[in-house]
Design a binder for these strands. Structure first.
Length: 259
DNA sequence: ATGACTTTCACGGAAAGA
């Protein structure tokens, strides 16, 4: 089974590239973030035409997450929103069960700066996510994936010194991420298969940062231990950060050994 | 040193991203 997670930075603006990804890789399950799309504007007909059912949690103009599921697979027991999220209106979490596995698409708050009120909101979201991961673990194998907005280690940023004092690399954020993986007994799929590689999933649109490879690895697929044993491959498709109207994130592809 | 770009809504420019 091929699973993909991708922050598309607007599903409507990115629809041609999303359809390109679906056609090229034919993934079974796709987690999308920053759909930035109201429920009435969801391009459900185009996605259906491509062979995918959609679970979408919308906050209108900002954020928004979705799961696409390729027929004949079907999403079961969808859950929209993270239980315990202090700001549930932002639509940063959705779940569905596919082929017996619980899939989560999440868009963790950015946090802006360490002294911004958004920063404790980010930590509170991560704390609720850890609780939810621990609860899912009692029920099913799972994949919690999305734009975690945390670089797990210094190797996951192009210049660790440049990020000292910034969000995405701070100790509280990294500890909160560790609490999610510990509570859910989860493994960072890319790092598990590539212990030493430096690869990024996000590059700022500005200043030619992509072409200089000045990026961060902040889009993660966290897989439960039962799935980690069967992982076949994991990679980042940088081609989707190139070309016509790219997102500022590249998709992360995970081949799960589910047959 | 700073900002650089792209999206939203809406029709100018602010907010948000990370």
């Amino acid at each position: 089974m091929l699973f993909v997670t991708w922050n598309v930075n607007s599903l409507r603006a990115r629809l041609p590239r999303v359809l390109e990804l679906l056609g090229e890789h034919q993934p079974d399950v796709v987690a999308l973030q920053e759909t930035k799309c109201s429920a009435e504007n969801l391009p459900i007909a185009e996605l259906d035409e491509a062979g995918y059912a959609v679970v979408h949690h919308s906050a209108g103009q900002w954020a928004g997450v979705a799961l696409l599921v390729r027929r004949p697979l079907e999403p079961e027991a969808p859950l929209l929103g993270l239980p315990g999220d202090p700001v549930p209106s932002e639509a940063r979490w959705c779940e569905a069960t596919v082929a017996g596995v619980r899939f989560v698409s999440t868009y963790v708050p950015n946090g802006r700066t360490l002294d911004n009120p958004e920063f404790p909101r980010k930590l509170a979201f991560l704390e609720a996510a850890a609780k939810r991961a621990a609860a899912i673990r009692l029920e099913a194998e799972m994949v919690i994936a999305g734009d975690l907005n945390i670089a797990p280690e210094d190797v996951d940023v192009h210049d660790p010194l440049a990020y000292v004092g910034s969000t995405h690399v701070s100790a509280p954020e990294r500890e909160a991420l560790a609490a999610i993986t510990e509570g859910g007994q989860l493994v960072d799929a890319f790092r598990h298969l590539h212990p030493d590689e430096q690869q990024f999933t996000w590059w700022d649109y500005r200043a030619g940062n992509f072409h200089k490879n000045l990026g961060m690895r902040i889009d993660l697929a966290l897989v439960s231990s039962g799935l980690a044993q069967g992982l076949l491959a994991c990679g980042i498709d940088r081609d989707f950060r190139k070309g016509f109207k790219p997102s500022d994130h590249a998709p992360l592809l995970v081949w799960l050994g589910l047959g």
